[in-house]
Simulated scan of single mutants.
Amino acid sequence: MTERATQRPKDFVKPAHWSSEPAPAPVPPKNEPDPRGLSPTRYGDWEQNGIAIDF
Rank of each mutant, 00 (worst) to 15 (best):
P22L: 02
E32C: 09
E21R: 12
P15R: 15
W18C: 12
H17E: 11
Q48V: 03
W46S: 09
D11F: 06
H17C: 07
T2V: 09
D11K: 11
D11V: 03
T6V: 10
P40N: 11
P35E: 06
A52M: 05
I53Q: 14
W18R: 14
R4H: 12
P26Y: 05
T41A: 14
L38T: 00
G50F: 00
R8Q: 12
A52F: 06
E21W: 05
M1G: 15
L38H: 07
T2R: 15
A16V: 04
E3P: 01
N31V: 06
P29L: 11
Y43D: 09
R36F: 09
S20I: 02
P15G: 15
H17S: 14
S20C: 05
R4C: 02
A25S: 06
D54N: 10
D34G: 11
Q48R: 13
K30D: 07
P35S: 11
G44A: 10
I53D: 09
R42I: 03
D11P: 00
I51A: 07
S19Q: 10
P24C: 04
N31A: 13
G44Q: 12
L38D: 12
L38N: 12
T6W: 00
D34P: 00
G37A: 00
F12I: 08
S20G: 11
P22D: 02
A52N: 05
S19D: 09
D45Y: 11
A16W: 03
G37S: 08
D34T: 08
F12S: 03
G44H: 12
M1Y: 10
D11M: 04
M1F: 09
D34N: 11
